[in-house]
Simulated scan of single mutants.
Amino acid sequence: MLADGDRQTAVPALVSEACGIVLELGPGIGSQLPRYDTSKITKIYGVEPNVDLHKSLRENIKTSGLIDVYEIIPCGVEDVVELKKHGIVLGNIDTILSVQVLCSVPDPNEMLRRLYALLRPGGQLIVYEHVKSKDLISSMVQNVYNVFWPFFIGNCHLNRTTQHSIMQAGDWRRIELTSPTSEDAWLVFPRIYGRLWKRL
């Protein structure tokens, strides 16, 4: 149905691990909706500041049978007042899902600290993000592309050290992150993906 392009990636398996009260960052039109295991979900809050996407997102929520579970929140995670109106406060989220979002937020370090604070003790952060390459030539290519790339692709930055930002966000009890292998480290879009659990 949706997001056929990442069907062969780790994304479907990662999304299916979301459980409890879920905060989905930047759901867009709802590409991940069919991948949730509804037997594990209590509530999903979709934080989507782009209101132009809400109509399609609502339609896909309905198609996926998640009307009673999914709530769209028309703001960014930095809007503490708006989040609180919807019952999202520090320490009450079980799962935060971020699929190719952290590359485009204004301040990823601050964003990740906020996200960590929202997680309950033992809660999990699920990520699938592209990152700065560890390969010298590829990172140089990323830096060149990044001069113009953010202007055309929704403020997406190719050369962010997202893994470092995630690790510095808080005290993680358990970390299951996969970095690029030596075979694909040269790519312009190397990925990190996996799950991290907040310390109890």
Results as ranks from 00 to 15, higher is better:
residue 7 R to P: 01
residue 8 Q to A: 14
residue 8 Q to I: 06
residue 9 T to Q: 08
residue 12 P to W: 07
residue 13 A to C: 04
residue 13 A to W: 04
residue 14 L to K: 04
residue 14 L to W: 04
residue 15 V to L: 10
residue 16 S to R: 09
residue 16 S to G: 14
residue 19 C to H: 15
residue 20 G to C: 11
residue 22 V to D: 15
residue 23 L to H: 05
residue 23 L to F: 12
residue 23 L to Y: 11
residue 24 E to L: 08
residue 26 G to V: 10
residue 28 G to Y: 04
residue 29 I to M: 11
residue 30 G to K: 07
residue 31 S to H: 03
residue 34 P to M: 06
residue 37 D to S: 08
residue 37 D to Y: 01
residue 38 T to E: 06
residue 39 S to H: 04
residue 41 I to D: 00
residue 46 G to C: 00
residue 47 V to W: 04
residue 50 N to S: 10
residue 50 N to D: 14
residue 52 D to P: 02
residue 53 L to I: 00
residue 53 L to W: 06
residue 53 L to Y: 03
residue 56 S to Y: 02
residue 58 R to L: 14
residue 59 E to Y: 05
residue 61 I to T: 07
residue 63 T to H: 12
residue 63 T to A: 15
residue 63 T to N: 11
residue 65 G to E: 04
residue 71 E to K: 06
residue 73 I to W: 01
residue 75 C to F: 05
residue 76 G to D: 03
residue 77 V to Q: 05
residue 78 E to K: 03
residue 78 E to W: 01
residue 80 V to C: 09
residue 82 E to W: 03
residue 83 L to T: 08
residue 83 L to H: 08
residue 83 L to D: 04
residue 84 K to G: 06
residue 84 K to L: 09
residue 85 K to V: 12
residue 86 H to L: 13
residue 86 H to N: 09
residue 87 G to I: 02
residue 89 V to E: 12
residue 92 N to G: 03
residue 92 N to I: 13
residue 93 I to Q: 06
residue 94 D to V: 05
residue 95 T to F: 05
residue 99 V to H: 11
residue 99 V to I: 13
residue 100 Q to F: 07
residue 102 L to R: 01
residue 107 D to S: 15
residue 110 E to V: 14
residue 112 L to D: 02
residue 113 R to C: 07
residue 114 R to Q: 12
residue 116 Y to G: 08
residue 118 L to A: 11
residue 120 R to L: 13
residue 123 G to F: 09
residue 124 Q to R: 11
residue 125 L to Q: 03
residue 127 V to N: 01
residue 127 V to I: 11
residue 129 E to C: 00
residue 132 K to P: 01
residue 133 S to F: 03
residue 138 S to E: 00
residue 138 S to L: 12
residue 139 S to G: 00
residue 141 V to Q: 12
residue 143 N to I: 07
residue 144 V to L: 13
residue 147 V to F: 09
residue 147 V to Q: 10
residue 153 I to N: 08
residue 156 C to I: 07
residue 156 C to D: 09
residue 157 H to D: 00
residue 163 Q to T: 12
residue 163 Q to I: 12
residue 166 I to Y: 11
residue 167 M to V: 14
residue 168 Q to H: 05
residue 170 G to M: 04
residue 170 G to F: 14
residue 172 W to D: 07
residue 172 W to H: 06
residue 174 R to G: 00
residue 175 I to C: 10
residue 179 S to C: 03
residue 180 P to E: 01
residue 181 T to A: 14
residue 185 A to L: 07
residue 187 L to Y: 03
residue 189 F to K: 08
residue 190 P to E: 11
residue 190 P to M: 02
residue 190 P to R: 09
residue 190 P to I: 00
residue 190 P to K: 02
residue 193 Y to Q: 07
residue 195 R to L: 12
residue 195 R to P: 01
residue 196 L to M: 15
residue 198 K to R: 15
residue 199 R to H: 10
residue 199 R to E: 15
residue 200 L to K: 13
residue 200 L to D: 14
